[in-house]
Structure formats: C-alpha cells, structure tokens
Nucleic acid binder design. Structure first.
Lengths: 133, 133
DNA sequence: GACTTAAAAGATGCTTTTTATCCTGAATTG
DNA sequence: CAATTCAGGATAAAAAGCATCTTTTAAGTC
C-alpha cells in the first residue's frame, strides 16, 4: 500500500523525460514509451491526463507531440502524483466510521490529517527541474 | 492510492480500542468487531497478524481474548501501518526501471527515499496513547 | 476426559482496481 | 485528401482488496 502505482511511476518518468528535452522540442508518445520503458498505449492515457490538467501541452499531426506546459521549476512531485493518482491519503476516520463527524474534536482524524499535510508538503518540495538534472 | 486500506483502518481502530480497555482487561474479537464497526472474520485475521508481530497478546479459551502486548505509549501509527500493510512507499526508480542502480547517484531515487523517510517519521510521531484519549 | 470457549490457520470466492490493449475519431500538416 | 499524431471510449486480463467459511489448536470448566 501507499506506494506509487505503475501509472504513477510512468507519469513521473514521462514528465522528467519531457523536462530533459531541448527548449521547444516535442516528444512523440512512441519515442517516450521506449525511452522510459513504459507501454505506449498506457503512457498515452497518462499524458492525455496531464494535457487535461495543464501540466503538459500536446499537438497533433506531423511535427506534433508533447512538451511541458510550464517551466520544470514550477512542476512538483505533488502536481504529478495528484494529477494521475488523485488525492492522496484520503482521510477516513481511524476510530469509528459511523459516528465520526470528521471535525476538530476527533483526535485520530486530526492525526491522519497531519500525516497527509506533511506528505503533500514533502512531495511539493521536489521540483521536476531538480529531478531532471 | 496512498491511502489506508480497509485493513489498515480496522487495524488502527482495533489497536486504539484495545488501548482504551482497562488494565489487564481482554477483549473478544466479536466484541471488538461490533465496537469498531469491522467484519469479525476480517478483523480476526488482522489481530492475528498483530499477535505475530508482537504488538498484541492473545489467549484462547474461556477468559481469553486480545490485549496490547506493550504500553500504548510505545506503539506508533507506523508500527500499526507497517505491520498490516507492509513496507510503505516502496522505492522504485522514477527515471528508468531497467538501468537504475538504486544508489546515491540517482536523484529521483534519492527524492523518493526522502519522501519515504519523512512519511515514516511522521507516522512514528503519533503514539496510540495520544490517539486513544 | 469430555465439553465449551476462543483464537489460529488455511482454503476459497467475490469485487474492485490496476494495467493495460484496441479501435475509431478528430486535429494538423503537407 | 493522405499521412501523421493525439483524444476518447470500449474492452479485458491480472492483481489486489475484502472478506467468509471451515477445521484445528489451545485453554479453561465440569
């Protein structure tokens, strides 16, 4: 549990690959799949998602492909992970599922919230730029 | 992804329930299942696991049941989570699966390692005693 | 020793998520 | 319009999650 899924791994690798491209250079999905060792169709879905969430730009036709939609300094591990895996560490109550009001009075709830906040902060601390070097 | 599974939730609730028992009081699995709103058989498996990992003591027969094997101050969220869910955030390489040596020279690898270390530290910071109040 | 109670251990099955693959459609270019 | 490249939807196999059931073992009771 609590690990990146394949999808998450491919996602991070894909973004780092794009970050390593030359300025204004576009990458084809087929090329990326080989480079980062990911199934092409699956990777295509992942990039599609990034395109929707505004992390990546895509264009079709000859000369098309994928590139980052913003500087790699402005993309963090958190952006990537949450984009493909959804919200992390969803906060269920650790005491009783039925009676918890999910509010400040529930200690277990607050503990888990803190875990979540810290994890998100840690992930947000790593930029793609720093990983791509 | 990255959330507690049901198993993890039941586990935390179960341990907190035991922490709230009176000194030397044992809890039956059937009683626990009702109290924390978990399926009895499934909870039994989880407690079995805790018994093996030394967090919980169990005894059979009349007057038997479960109790914590050590003070609730000495059991952390990390102990619980790793006991039932296994090692968290397993560290695959984020660049290339095949060529990574998983060593110090891999930046992405080190980043993920750091995420993992921080998460473990955060979880280790919460004792069952503090949650059981 | 037989009986009851309660956890341990193993086998099994259902459901959901993950991990893809494939096909058709839409946009872009030459 | 023909080739290229991504978009979107449908489908399916494999794995993980979520249990349930049965049998066995251990401990206390009569």
């Amino acid at each position: 549990m609590m690990g990146l899924t394949r999808k998450g791994e491919y996602a991070v690798r894909g973004i780092i690959y794009l970050a390593r491209q030359k300025k204004d250079q576009k990458a084809l999905i087929a090329e990326m799949a080989v480079a980062i060792d990911a199934p092409q169709n699956f990777l295509a879905k992942i990039m599609q998602r990034f395109s929707q969430s505004g992390i990546v730009q895509s264009s079709r036709g000859v000369g098309g492909g994928f590139s980052l939609a913003k500087p790699s300094e402005e993309i963090t591990l958190l952006d990537i992970v949450e984009s493909v895996e959804g919200s992390i560490l969803v906060n269920h109550c650790l005491l009783r599922s039925k009676t918890c009001k999910n509010d400040e009075t529930c200690r277990a709830h607050r503990a888990w919230q803190k875990v979540q906040d810290q994890l998100r902060a840690t992930l947000a601390g790593f930029t793609v730029a720093s990983l791509a070097k």
